[in-house]
Each structure stands twice: as C-alpha cells, then as structure tokens.
Amino acid sequence: MADLSLLQDDLQDTDGLGVDDYSSESDVIVIPSALDFVSQDEMLTPLGRLDKYAASENVFNRQMVARSLLDTLREVCDDERDCIAVLERISRLADDSEPTVRAELMEQVPHIALFCQENRPSIPYAFSKYLLPIVVRYLADQNNQVRKTSQAALLALLEQELIERFDVETKVCPVLIELTAPDSNDDVKTEAVAIMCKMAPMVGKDITERLILPRFCEMCCDCRMFHVRKVCAANFGDICSVVGQQATEEMLLPRFFQLCSDNVWGVRKACAECFMAVSCATCQEIRRTKLSALFINLISDPSRWVRQAAFQSLGPFISTFANPSSSGQYFKEESKSSEDMSEGKNRYNFKTLFSSFPICEHSFHHLIINTLFRELTTSELYFR
C-alpha cells in the first residue's frame, strides 16, 4: 500500500515527470507502515519490550508497562533469572516521577504478589525483597492517589496472608509507627492510624498488643488533631476485640473515657457508635460500675447527633448485660444482633427494639434511663 500511494503521488507531480525518472533504486522512498512497528515488537523478547516502553517519554506507554507486568512475568516464569530481572525493573519503575504510573503499578502489586506466592520455587523471596518495600514506601507518597492505592494494596495483601509475620513486624509496623510520629504530615498520620486499626484484626493479638497498641493509645490523646482522635474512636471497638479483656481494661478504658469527654462532638459520636463492642471486651462489673454511667453521659450529651448515636446503641449495649444461662439470649458480636440459643425460647432482637426507641427531648428522659440502668446494675434482672 505504501508503494502504491507513492506511485500515485509521483504521477500527479506538477513537473510532468514520468515513472522513468524514478527508475534508480536510490531515488525510491519507502514509507514505513504501522505493521512494521508491530513486527519489530514481536521480534523483541518480553524483557526487551518491557525495557523499550519503560524508558518511553510517553506516560501512557509507561502506564501500559505497569499494567502488563503480570503478563510479562507469566511469559518468563520458567526462567528464574528472567523473573528476577522483571522484578528488578519493577523496582526501577516504582521511582517513576508520574503519579499515575506509580498508582497503576501499585494496583498490580497484589496480583503480582499472588503470582509470586504460587511460583515460590521459581522466585524465592520475591515479594519480601522487591514488592513489599515499594508498598510501604508508597504509604508516605506525596500524591494522595498513590497513598490510597498503597493502603488498599497493603490491606489486600494482609487479608490474603501474603505477607510473612516477620515482615509485618520488621517492615510494615515500623513504617506505620514512624508515619504516626508527632512531626509527621497531618494527612499521612491520620491515614496511618486508620491502617493500623484496620490491620489489627488481620495480624492478631500478639503483634497488635506489642507493636500497635502503645502507639494507638498515644494517638487517642493527640491534642493537636481531632481527626486522629476521631479515627481512634471509630475503631476503638475493633482494637478492644483484638487485644482482649485485660488489655482493654488496663490500657484502653482510660483512653476511652477521655474520648467520650472530647470537646469535639464527632469524636464523642464515634464513641457512642462503638460502645457495644467496647462493652463486650470488659467484665460485667466494669459494665455495671463504669460503662453504664459513661453511657448515660453520652445519652445526655449537649449534641443532638451524639444523643442520637447513643440511643441507637442503647439496645446493643443493654444486650451485653444479658446472662445467656438464665435468659436464653446470646449476643452475637459478628452480626451485631441478639440470637436465641435455645430452640424452645422466644427470640428477641434487642437492637431492633431499642434502636427504634424515640429520642425524647424532655428532661424526664434522664430519669427513665437512670431507672433502667439502676435496675440493670442493682438487681438480677437479665431479660428473664
């Protein structure tokens, strides 16, 4: 097609010269077609194509390289040296100055990590050496999109158990603790606290209690940023569930009392919403003597939004006082509802019952609530 178009142009030349004027081979002009470039790429090895487009000045080409990394690994998976070469190029691509390229790369990391796990004999320690450092480094990236993508990737990797326990302790947790330091960037600190809270159920009690809990307690008292305190309050119940009763009562409850008295209503509202989970992690005596009075304070809060959240948590909180042996009621924390454990007994859903309790603005509603809790804390009335 290129030769025909050239011939047509020559015939229409204004000089009136014929085809014979271009009989010499040196005068023939060859116009390359798109097919020529395709054939050139097909002649390249997978690593050659990777190098060619990774060095391109076109951002779209570099994005395509990041998107096709998994396919490249599959092509060379039979050769350990080629696999390592691809992983080394991933490390170089991670230094790209364009945020969209870095974000695209991070989206592929969980898939590449899973591939490395499945082909562990061919690529030993590939994830720990080449991929995990990129994930934790991007947690502090200046670009918000890159940070969000790395946070999602980290949680996905933890959920799929693709990160070794040793790496969690030595590579992930130290970075998160560093990002929550007092001199850290405000946005980065808030996001790091949220990640620590979300990963706690995935890494288990031991790591959470040793590495995450001390910094979490510090963040609950962050005087400068209420956003950090709000994140801590919103995830307080999850942390309590992970570390258990002793750590909750000794280390977390004092912080919870402070958060429930915070001068920002959003923090107090978050405390009201997680009150049931905190109650589940304490003994009956603590619920009677401390948490019941604290909950009454939230129900009497000056903020309408805090009061509303407290009333919605009233039923779930009361259900934590139930004695299954005498009432037949058992509070199933996972589904946040009361379940009947005995086939012959009535089934009640206390969350539904008390969540629909009308928010009374009259002063005597304090008396009603106080009377209710006095019955709970001074008698053996456990929903018989």
Rank of each mutant, 00 (worst) to 15 (best):
303 S>C: 10
9 D>L: 07
239 I>T: 04
88 E>L: 14
93 L>N: 05
57 E>G: 15
365 H>E: 05
153 A>N: 09
333 E>W: 01
61 N>L: 08
136 V>D: 07
165 R>S: 14
116 C>I: 04
24 S>L: 03
119 N>K: 06
58 N>V: 10
321 F>P: 13
116 C>T: 11
321 F>M: 11
207 I>Q: 07
353 L>W: 09
137 R>G: 05
184 S>Q: 13
204 G>M: 11
296 I>A: 06
360 C>R: 03
132 L>G: 03
307 R>P: 03
316 P>F: 12
203 V>R: 05
263 N>S: 15
227 H>M: 14
369 I>P: 01
333 E>T: 12
136 V>P: 07
351 K>D: 14
270 A>R: 11
214 P>L: 15
375 E>Q: 10
139 L>E: 05
306 V>F: 05
106 M>Q: 06
57 E>L: 08
344 G>R: 09
290 K>D: 09
308 Q>F: 08
51 D>A: 15
245 Q>H: 05
220 C>M: 08
347 R>A: 13
241 S>M: 07
114 L>Y: 09
89 R>G: 07
99 P>I: 01
42 E>C: 01
296 I>N: 04
190 T>C: 10
184 S>I: 14
145 Q>F: 01
266 G>C: 11
355 S>E: 09
227 H>F: 15
116 C>Y: 01
348 Y>W: 04
307 R>Q: 11
276 M>G: 00
351 K>A: 15
307 R>I: 03
78 D>Y: 15
172 V>H: 02
127 F>H: 02
58 N>L: 05
185 N>S: 04
122 S>P: 02
309 A>I: 07
284 Q>F: 07
336 K>L: 15
172 V>W: 00
72 T>N: 01
279 S>L: 05
145 Q>D: 14
145 Q>P: 00
88 E>P: 02
310 A>K: 12
292 S>Q: 04
112 I>K: 03
115 F>D: 03
368 I>K: 04
98 E>F: 05
49 R>W: 01
364 F>M: 09
204 G>V: 11
33 S>E: 14
1 M>I: 07
348 Y>D: 02
151 Q>P: 00
270 A>V: 07
381 L>T: 14
110 P>A: 03
305 W>T: 12
40 Q>W: 06
125 Y>C: 09
46 P>G: 05
271 C>P: 14
40 Q>Y: 06
105 L>P: 02
344 G>D: 14
69 L>V: 01
372 L>E: 04
276 M>T: 10
170 T>K: 07
129 K>Y: 10
184 S>L: 08
